[in-house]
Write a protein that binds this DNA or RNA. Structure first.
Lengths: 132, 132
DNA sequence: GCGCCGCTCTGCCCTCAGCAGAAGGGCGCC
DNA sequence: GGCGCCCTTCTGCTGAGGGCAGAGCGGCGC
């Protein structure tokens, strides 16, 4: 069963030209990236509090139940695309806004967790500066 | 370290200082923001193709089944936090990278869909320019 | 004390995430 | 020309978990 057939990389079937350098660090043990739903939940809660609104208020605006919104904010349930959009909307935000905030937190968390933390991350796609 | 006048930034649990003007356009109708899972799927597929890799390859790296990865890329199934992280990782990206790309697509889509489209969106949190 | 308000915990049901198996479709090989 | 391989997508199935109604708990005004 061993690699008798060889790596045989040259399956030249495809010739799409510009290959991006496939990341070949298989598992260099990047410890823990925070779980997305936690970060999203945190953002939602922070925004809600910043607006001084209650779970009930936002939940109704988003057409979801109060306990469920609570669970989302605490990162205990996974928000589907529709629910997330509704919740964001209820806070007067777009998906893009929420994602911005989430990203900021991810970056912040990473820099504290691994101060020299660099993945392929920012460098490549980095410069997205969306202005008004 | 207790700046006693200022709302100490020391902890995340900051006192919510300024109430943000609650968004009071309740919900007239903002017609269609693209569904998150579609955008995410598109990003995953594009990245995979850019690396010239197959579903099988990436699926194995992410420890998920091939058909399921296909569904994710096509936006037919919702990706949980863990699965999304695994898929991103399998492509050599972090969550932040994926979110960046997703956000870019959202912005792009919006500008085509609603050329004058402005929500509370970009203005407020706009300037996240993450550099190296 | 008592009731209200805001949040969280407890089950419950039914959708859907996630997968094994097999069916298209394209290209190389004999 | 046919055969077979590879990548992808479709078809059911099962168990996990999304989403909710209802009750429980601490705080504050009366």
């Amino acid at each position: 069963m061993t690699t008798h057939t060889a790596p045989a990389p040259a399956d030249t079937r495809t010739r799409i030209v510009p290959l991006r350098p496939r990341p070949e660090a298989p598992r260099p043990e990047q410890p823990r990236e925070p779980l997305l739903r936690d970060v999203v939940g945190g953002v939602l809660r922070r925004e809600r509090l910043a607006q001084e609104r209650t779970l009930k208020d936002v939940a109704e605006a988003a057409r979801i139940s109060v306990p469920y919104l609570s669970e989302l904010e605490r990162g205990r349930k996974e928000a589907s695309s529709e629910v997330l959009a509704a919740a964001a909307r209820a806070l007067g935000l777009g998906l893009g806004d929420v994602l911005s905030l989430v990203q900021q937190e991810l970056v912040a968390a990473r820099s504290t967790t691994a101060p020299r933390g660099r993945t392929a991350t920012a460098g490549r796609y980095g410069g997205l500066c969306l202005a008004a």
